[in-house]
Write a protein that binds this DNA or RNA. Structure first.
Lengths: 270, 270
DNA sequence: GCAAAAGTGTTCTATGTACACCCATGT
DNA sequence: ACATGGGTGTACATAGAACACTTTTGC
């Protein structure tokens, strides 16, 4: 019986009193989170090193079992914070969280039949304290009961080099699915802005596209296309500090209110 | 313990012998299927009328609980066949099945905490026997144990007219999500061809776009765009039978091998 | 002055749209 | 003959790619 449900009639109450949920076999429900960010010019994914049995020592996505009265999104945020210290809530300046898909192949987890609802998060690479916190490192205070001891970002290109089979469970192919989703979403949504803190320059935005897609883009045309897409970015009216090796300071922008890009930003053909 | 898992080491065997899956609360896992087709020029969804308690008498998506050793896709096909008679397997001439997303809000099902993995199917409207069978009507032979007594297609526009709240559980908003997914997918994939049997004419294909998007398209330009998109359709080399009210017989085509359309087929702006 | 990054102008080409017109069939 | 749906030709408008060039900073 579901404690979160409020009966609406006497008939409902009668039915629920005689209902046995144990009539169905138990299936475990977990959430996992693929956190992507841009580090050192490359797309990177946040992984945890497992300490307990299934795939002990292997790197895996942060995640865990859903509580019986807990919403799926909330479970994803909770497990992510518990295992890595990364908090997506708060003022939420830029972090994006969406459901990727659900993986349920029998035999994917040795403990029991488990289906995993996997979320995709896109976050800025913030080394400073703020609403987004760097993942906890070994030795920092953590609440007990978790499977993970250490968390770090891995460049997705390096993962392909070691072979996707190096990740625990089916997490290698899940990361591949997530990367492809992110690449596709940059084409028709303004989600590239979720990879950077505000305010940002158009050069930073362009380097995000270049890192995620693995291409180089023509800077002048990129600028024109972004500015001519309604609702993509809004000018702040200030200029950035100049960088090290010179270069003209860039104008600063923040996210616009568009959720879809018209026209779309298509990847250059092969 | 998961019976579908084959241990790979003695250490694994030892761990599994001492593992208690009942340490976690039970959460029910169901699959539901949104079957869309084009009927009488309108986008339609397949619903079943519930006979047993939760939302008895209301129309709902076909679906049900996943067996403990059953893959999610297989469960979706099984529940669909059991409750409606519609079989997606076989030669599979054209039917498309993909995961839509997973719905898990606590309180969405009065029986217990249930998360539903929802699938989206696009099928041709085939009134004749074949690999795709019309949904079973009241009184036809069905295996016992199912919740559904009757199945029929509803025009999605009519559902909006009666209010989305008329559907059982949260199925009204699920159908809305599925329709939006279908509309978007027609833009960048050749999935419109899944709504028709082969071979088809370009006029039939155009009317599918018009029905799903609710617009009217310029026939000559539609033709040129389809034929200039590599891998979308392949000419069969024959012509259709002429229709009732006259009109030149059309050339026949079948699906090409493309999975993505380059360039994309964008909806006309509002 | 030179390098580096930002930003503007202009040209050329590809793509999308609109309109006119021809073709093959039923009534 | 006319209506109906299929199919082709062509011109116009807009969007994208390429290239040259100017601006503002650090060294």
């Amino acid at each position: 019986v579901n404690p979160a449900y409020v009966p609406e009639s006497a008939e409902e109450r009668r039915f629920l009193a005689s209902y046995d949920p144990r009539a169905y076999d138990a299936i475990g429900v977990t959430v996992d989170v693929v956190v992507l960010t841009i580090r050192a010019g490359g797309l990177s994914v946040l992984l945890v090193n497992r300490t307990s049995f299934p795939h002990r020592g292997a790197w895996a996505l942060p995640g865990g079992f859903v509580a019986v009265d807990e919403d799926l999104d909330a479970a994803a945020k909770r497990e992510l914070a518990e295992e890595t210290g990364l908090k997506l809530d708060g003022t939420g300046a830029g972090a994006h969280l969406e459901q990727l898909r659900t993986y349920g192949r029998p035999g994917r987890d040795p403990r029991m039949r488990v289906i995993s609802v996997v979320y995709l998060a896109l976050v800025p690479d913030l080394p400073t304290p703020g609403t987004l916190v760097r993942p906890a490192l070994r030795g920092s205070a953590r609440s007990g009961g978790s499977d993970a001891s250490d968390a770090r970002f891995w460049a997705v290109d390096d993962l392909a080099g070691e072979g996707a089979g190096a990740l625990a469970f089916d997490h290698g192919s899940i990361v591949a699915d997530a990367v492809e989703r992110a690449r596709a979403k940059l084409e028709y949504t303004p989600l590239a802005t979720s990879f950077t803190a505000e305010p940002f320059t158009l050069g930073e935005l362009r380097r995000i596209y270049e890192a995620v897609w693995g291409v180089s883009l023509h800077a002048p045309n990129f600028r024109r296309k972004v500015l001519s897409t309604p609702g993509f970015v809004l000018p702040v009216g200030e200029r950035s500090e100049p960088g090290d090796g010179g270069g003209r300071p860039a104008e600063l922008y923040r996210r616009g209110d568009a959720t879809l890009l018209h026209p779309a930003f298509l990847r250059p053909p092969a």
